[in-house]
Design a protein around this nucleic acid. Sequence first.
DNA 1: AACGCCGCCTGATCGC
DNA 2: TGCGATCAGGCGGCGT
Length: 283
Amino acid sequence: MPELPEVEILVRHLAPLLSKPRTIYSVKVGRPRVLRPTSSRALTRVLRGACLTGVRRRGKYLVFEVHCAHSGFKKNLVGHLGMTGRMYLQPRSHRLPKHAAVVLDLGDERFVFEDTRYFGRFTLDTTVLDSLGPEPLGPGFTPQRFGAGLARSGQPIKIKLLDQRLVAGIGNIYASEALFRAGISPGLPARRLEAQAVRGLWNAIRQTLKEAIKFGSTVALNYSGLNGDGLFYYGRAADSPGTYDEHLLVYDRKDLPCFTCGTPIKRIVQAARSTFYCPHCQR
DNA sequence: AACGCCGCCTGATCGC
DNA sequence: TGCGATCAGGCGGCGT
């Protein structure tokens, strides 16, 4: 499932493809739900004839820049991959995927937002971005601010890390990974973390995310660009070979030995989500 | 205001 | 073998 590192890799992949403005000739909406609260009609009205001129990341969101040369307006379009989303450009001769939520005709190529479970988003409503916390790898994320956010909550720290208002971009996988690296038990109430633990977790979050971006992007570069067909830019599948999976220390390793101490990794359920941790290394 | 819980989705896997 | 039940989980919305 895509979290901050996966989205960052996708954005780095897509950005150069949009460095030359791409005119949108038509818009096809396969699943209007992903546009909410934007209507298909409103999206089409804004996008048709306009240009995609760039893309950046905010938390787990992709923010596309849309520009219309005639009226001069600039607008942002917010995308989210949900659990199973993918975004990529493909030649128009290629077959559309089964679950094509949104397709933008760009002439000889098309932009595809595919999402099997339709949990993702593709919308002109940018208000979701307003409630996001700081970027974990940006200057706004300080141990002080992080600690202040944690101090206001009695929730288990693992659950709190998934709160996008506290810090943006951490999902279920990296929450477990960061807690393991910091040696903190996932059930510990957020406000019970002492200053040293806050600092350690702050650092672990940043290290974990940076490493995932580093390992993932190496592969992503091999994956993108031209292939045998001449033009085939493809977004990465979440489970494509060479993802960060093989570097995960605890996630999905139930009953397997901890890499540090050999104790079997435990799986528990918190707020209906799996948490993996080492009962010996994490207190 | 913080927090818990449900609904949204499809596909993989499990039990009978 | 076939089929229904269960699980996976990000996040918005709702109720407490």
